[in-house]
Structures are given as C-alpha cells and as structure tokens.
Amino acid sequence: MLQGHQTWIFESKPVIIASAAVGGPFEAKGNLADDFDVLHDDIWLGQDSYEQAESKFLEQACETAIKKAGLKKEDVQFFLCGDLINQIIPSSFTARTLAIPYLGLYGACSTSIEGLAIASLIVDNKFGNNVLVGASSHNAASEKQYRYPTEYGAQKPPTAQWTVTGAGAAVVAQQGEGPRVAAATIGRVIDMGLSDPFNMGAAMAPAAVDTFEAHFRDMQIDPSYYDLITTGDLGKIGHRIAGDLLSKHGINLPGEKWTDCGMLMYKAEQPVMAGASGCACVATTTFGHFMNRLRKRELRRILVIATGALLSPMSYQQKETIPCIATAVAIEM
C-alpha cells in the first residue's frame, strides 16, 4: 500500500525466512567475520577471472540461503539480483545456474535493498510465495572496471573506500519465522554536483538524507521508533556528513542508534581509508550481521538506508557528476 509520496507499507509483513553472507579473505579479517556463513581465503575461488569468481560468490550465497530456508530451487518463484560489473553479468550468470525466473537490478551499492523492497512487494501482493534476493561485489573486479588495474601503484586519498568481496542473499516468503519487512521507501536520484570517484561518501550522503526524511515524513513516525538506523556504504566521512546534514535539519540521532555498514565491516587497522563499499557491503552486513542480531532479538526494529552512486567509468571520464540514490527498508523482528 502506498503511504505518502514514496513509501510502501507491506500489510502482510513478508518474512525473511533465511539469509546468507559469503565473503573473501579481507572480510575474514574484518569486524563481522562471525556473521558470514562462508569465508574464502582466495579471491579467485579457483576461477579464471575475477568476474567468474564473483559469480561463484553469488551462487554460493544464493544456494546457502535457499538451503537454510529448507527449500529447493524449484520452490523459489523469482530471483532478483544485481551487482557492479558491466551488464550485471555475475547476477545473470548466477540466474543461469539457478534457473529461477529472474529480474536483473541495478542500483549500484544499494541493489540488495532495492531487491529486498521489490521482493517484499511481490510477496505482499501474493505474486510469489518465495522470492530470492541477492547482490554481490568483488574488490579486484570493481577496481579493474571503475579505477585502475588492481596492482597499479596509485596512491588512494583518505576519502577512498574499499569494495567488499562477497555476496549476500535472502529468501523472502509469505509465511515463516524470521525478521519481517514492514515498509520500504524508494529514493529519488540526487546529484549535488560532486564528481570525484574517490569520494563517494560525500556524493551519496545527500541521497541518504533525502530518503531518510522521506521515510519519516511518509510514515509519520519519529526516528526513535527504530532501534537502529544504518546507512549503506557512506563510510566514516559520508556518514559524518549525513549525520551533520540531519542535525542541520533538526534531527539529532544518538551515536549508538546511527551507524553505517561501510564503517562496521572492517577493523580500524585494516587499510580501507574511509571504510567499505560495494553491493556486497550492504548485502552481507544486512543479510549477515543485522539478520543475526534481529534473530537473536538484540534488535527489534531497524531501518536500512542503502546508498548507491550511479556513475560509470565512462560518465566519470566524460566529466559528468555523480548521481546518487538511496533506498530504505524497515525490518522488524
């Protein structure tokens, strides 16, 4: 049901009956290692290319989620997935392996939450009983596509972020046990004229703030309704900017209730500059870490505002600015 301008309320509250997170070696050394279902010590996964390796990460996350849900592939009606590689090949190739009817998505790093919102819409309207959502990213594949060759010695500025290698997946169902999706707010594309691809946090922060304000305006609730509000992959710089922007607009959030997936993923001593990013950042943090905390009932209600920078390597070279989006999903236990 539409509420306000851009928020969907899911009356049946679709259930996330199972979720899975798969990560690479760098994630294994990070803060959230315990929340991953599978961690690999090799970013290649025995494949011939980074792109193929990313497909394997995604396949494994999807298969683990289906298995944890106690389902077979045939029981899942639709598969919604996206990633960062040109023409989203890891997602489409995973859909080829899974052979589940598929909708490819692109919302840059917000893809997993975009998928979760649409999956909940499908399930809430009874257009599907079980819908699988997934998203992946691969550090080396992203570096190669968006920036420089992985081994090229370019000095990264303090505002740069580290793309997470891994994948997250979740099964959204009409019935079952688990965290429930209560609402979703679809964001507008916001462009504040920033063009530095090594400073995505500052570019994406206004999009996060816009969706944040839209969510609370449409829902007519107060931020204190949630136990935790997390942004996607703003990193510590973007997150601080978003927090300060909200304060400027009269919304003050206490530090323990206001966090960012990009800040949670890695340890302070890991050389990730401003924090983590990539589709897998929000996907693994939400479908791994936050789902576990919800299932343990440490958290009752959370709002995930996933952000995405909708640039391409070509748009950057053509001196275009970076349009950004944020999609919010409210999850309850």
Binding site: T159, A202, P206, I237, R240, I241, D244
Partner: peptide, 10 residues
C-alpha cells in the same frame, strides 16, 4: 552542500 561536505573531508 559542497562547501559543507568539504569542511568535513580529510
């Protein structure tokens, strides 16, 4: 906004 953000970037 850019001035606002710039003041918060290292």
């Amino acid at each position: 906004y850019q001035d606002f953000a710039h003041a918060r970037e290292p």
